[in-house]
Design a protein around this nucleic acid. Structure first.
Length: 783
DNA sequence: GTTAGTGACGTTTTT
DNA sequence: CGTCACTAAC
């Protein structure tokens, strides 16, 4: 037997060695699902299946990357590179990149993220003279998204009586009209939103039999991870692809279905068994992750949901500690408790930062934890929330690149046409948009032919200068890579210069972010393959399509020793030795938005199940009597889910002895308890007993915490010398002394980067080491 | 055409 | 509390 099959249990082995025909693996939390999937792929390869014929679809880039990595390790060669492993969205984007012309899109179509699409919806609402107070872009967006995920196009939407009744009931009869206009506008812009990547893929397979045939032939073996999270479009696409060979293997756990708001339906699991004649079903019920306490609590809580697929999840692991229940007065106190406990656990049991995760229901809850961790000097990283690519300065820069790659992209064009300010104001743009709509041409074309539309001389000149500049960028597309184009854009738009001359701390941070963007483009350009494994094309168009599908969890450095903070949704599929779940309160968890129907509540319960089953050894659940919301204090009851947990596995000694608080009147008692239990001093006590934690022992040059943005206040302001004149730095060498307008005096440590984009690493006397891009920064050579 | 200041409004979860 | 959109004055 091959090495890689060793160590699998009976069910895992059966699943991994299943070669032909439809297979459904019902995999409980922590039952070795990824191991089975990867082993199965290795097994297929070992038994003569060509890597080029295997498609594996996941929901996150991270899951895809992990699979690929594990398979590479198992095989000990590079065969994994030929596998088609990726998220639904990135795999379909890649296919559409080659086929988009068939459905009227440019192959370098733009991908709109949620913000982009909301902004287009807003534009459309306004153009239809509807009130965006009533037609809230968020609401409209989610209606449209639901429709797309259910394979309902604009025409079907308008004809469907159930949908129309629903919209009438909420007094928003014009959503059908908005949907229609939105779809038309995206098409005109040569852009697809996230849902379109699925929908257009489906259209493509449905309407072009030769394409369908080609991919059916290519993907002879299909695997789908997290099957319980697929929506109807995804279901239909995979059904189409699998129809010829029926070698389709799906893995899922109905108890972990938490994306119904995105159109996912557990129905797909049930339907799967009906769609194929001889579906083999294998259940993985042994949990290898958690202690008995944790697993029992999870099992007991999920039992309150109706109609789960019968499963008996068990473990041979130790009983482990009881689950600790913690009550605090406020959210800030909750944050302090968690930070303090992490410190204490580190000292007492020698955990690393990376062993801890703090999970919560909503992103807004991260702040209290963040502040406390920062105060304690514990390294952490927040996942989700505002991603790097959502920052304004990054979006601006990317908008330029987008316009360059696809001039039909009106959203991007409007964003940058007058930024930095170049005298093309609101009225000018409005007029151009009207002309574009009237003449059925793109905004870009209007600008190109601006002379025909009677603009004032000054305005006309401004427009023409802008057009000339973008055209110059475009002229580079054919024979320059993404990075070279981006550098030119940075130079000629004054964007970088403008940020550089902004001397505020925020301005500096923005400037550094843009530099970081340029660096990452460079890195991407120089790496042999793209993130989804595709080898080759380093053009701007490919780059742009790819980054839109990237989340900041994907750029993670695995080995970073940091406490991880994220929503429970983001934590799915991950595991941590020690887990804290915060805000286990009514109206937060379960969310106040999801307690009106049984279905909603059950999804919240599954989410709770996911949260609990992330923990391997230890689990803390905390709730606050009151927390800040919109700036004022509101009170919450402890979550109903706490009542569903079996008493014998719960340690309530941190919850004032009982799971229920005393209706908010117990402020005195709680504060009193707190002082006498003194949990605020546990870490201090532990430090006296066990000595300082590893991070405190060796005082390294690196800070003990790694915030997402370095605290900008740390820059010691420097007044440039009176005779500060930027030197010619084209021949700068390591060892030379220089002066920077902001960072002060320092010595060049290292020179890197290409000749047209040199980067100097400078060690400043007052501000430490900085990477300086010489194309943008001004340095005076001192000696 | 640009900018600064004020008021209304919002928080579920994500590729 | 913080962001964003709209209004009033340069």
């Amino acid at each position: 037997m091959q090495d890689y099959l060793k160590g699998l249990n009976e069910q895992q082995m059966a699943a991994a060695m299943h070669m032909k025909g439809p297979l459904m693996i019902v995999a409980g939390a922590g039952s070795g699902k990824t191991k089975v999937l990867t082993t199965r792929i290795a097994y297929l390869l070992a038994n003569g299946v060509d890597a080029f014929n295997i498609l594996a679809l996941t929901f996150t880039n991270k899951a895809a990357a992990e699979m690929k990595e594990r398979i590479t390790k198992m095989l000990g060669n590079n065969e994994a590179r030929n596998l088609y492993i990726g998220t639904f969205h990135s795999v379909f984007a890649r296919i559409l990149r080659g086929e988009a012309h068939r459905i009227g899109y440019p192959n370098s179509f733009t991908i709109y993220d949620g913000d982009d699409s909301r902004s287009v919806i807003k534009t459309v609402i306004n153009e239809l003279n509807l009130d965006d107070k009533h037609y809230k872009p968020n609401v409209v967006q989610s209606r449209i998204s639901q429709a797309k995920n259910a394979l309902v196009g604009p025409a079907e939407y308008a004809m469907d009586s159930a949908i129309q009744q629903e919209d009438m009931r909420s007094n928003r009869p014009a959503i059908a009209q908005i949907y229609q206009a939105y779809a038309a506008r995206c098409f005109k812009n040569g852009a697809m939103d996230f849902d379109d990547l699925l929908l257009k893929m489906h259209d493509l397979l449905k309407n072009f039999p030769e394409v369908l045939h080609r991919f059916q032939h290519k993907f002879k073996y299909i695997m789908i991870d997290e099957y319980q999270d697929t929506n109807p479009v995804q279901y239909e696409i995979t059904k189409l692809l699998a129809a010829a060979n029926e070698n389709i293997c799906v893995v899922g756990d109905d108890a972990q279905s938490i994306y119904s708001f995105r159109g996912a339906t557990i129905e797909n699991i049930l339907q799967f068994q009906k769609d194929y004649d001889d579906v083999k079903v294998i259940k993985l019920e042994q949990n290898y992750r958690s202690t008995k306490s944790i697993l029992h609590v999870a099992n007991e809580v999920i039992k309150n949901n109706k109609g789960q697929i019968p499963k008996d999840l068990w473990t041979e692991n130790d009983g482990g500690d009881k689950i600790r229940l913690v009550r605090t007065m406020t959210d800030n106190e909750e944050g302090r408790f968690v930070a303090d406990t992490i410190q204490e656990q580190k000292l007492r049991y020698h955990y690393y930062n990376r062993d801890f995760a703090i999970l919560y229901r909503t992103n807004a809850q991260s702040r209290a934890f963040e502040e406390s961790l920062r105060r304690m000097g514990i390294a952490y990283k927040i996942y989700g929330g505002l991603s790097f690519y959502q920052r304004k300065e990054i979006k601006d820069m990317i908008a330029y690149l987008r316009v360059t790659a696809n001039t039909r992209d009106e959203e991007a064009l409007k964003r940058i046409i007058n930024y930095p300010v170049r005298g093309i104001g609101k009225t000018t743009i409005e007029r151009a948009v009207i002309v574009a709509n009237e003449q059925q041409i793109t905004l870009w074309e209007v600008l190109n032919r601006a002379a025909e539309f009677g603009y004032k001389a000054g305005t006309l000149e401004a427009i023409q200068n802008f057009v000339t500049m973008i055209r110059y960028f475009q002229s580079m597309l054919a024979d320059k890579n993404a990075y070279d184009v981006a550098v030119q854009v940075g130079k000629h738009t004054n964007l970088v210069k403008e940020l550089f001359s902004d001397k505020t701390t925020e301005g500096l941070a923005r400037y550094e972010n843009v530099q970081e963007l340029l660096n990452s483009i460079k890195e991407w350009t120089e790496s042999p393959s793209n993130d989804d494994g595709e080898v080759g094309d380093k053009t701007l168009g490919v780059y742009l399509q790819q980054i839109t599908l990237l989340t900041d969890a994907d750029n993670e450095k695995e080995d970073a020793d940091v406490v991880k903070l994220m929503t429970i949704h983001a934590a799915k599929g991950l595991e941590f030795p020690v887990v804290f779940v915060g805000g286990v309160e009514e109206s937060i968890f379960p969310s106040g938005m999801s307690i009106n129907t049984r279905e909603e509540l059950e999804e919240e319960r599954r989410l709770f199940y996911v949260a609990v089953t992330r923990a391997k050894h230890k689990l803390w659940l905390s709730y606050a009597n009151a927390r800040y919301r919109f700036g004022n204090l509101v009170q919450n009851e402890p979550s109903r889910f706490l009542d569903e947990m079996p008493e014998e596995y719960i340690d309530k000694s941190y919850a004032g002895g009982g799971a229920r608080n005393q209706g908010g009147m117990s402020n005195q008692g709680s504060a009193f308890e707190r002082m006498h239990r003194g949990f605020g001093n546990d870490a201090a006590a532990a430090e006296r007993m066990y000595g300082p934690p590893p991070s405190k022992k060796k005082e390294t040059a690196k800070p003990t915490y790694l915030p997402v943005q370095p605290p900008a206040s740390k820059v010691v302001e420097h007044k440039p010398s009176a005779d500060f004149i930027p030197s010619d730095t084209s021949n700068l060498q390591a060892g030379q002394k220089v002066e920077h307008q902001k960072f002060g005096f320092g010595e060049v440590v290292k020179m890197e980067g290409s000749s047209h984009n040199p980067i100097a690493t400078v060690l400043f006397k007052t501000n430490g080491e900085k990477k300086i891009m010489l194309n943008y920064a001004k340095l005076r050579i001192v000696e």
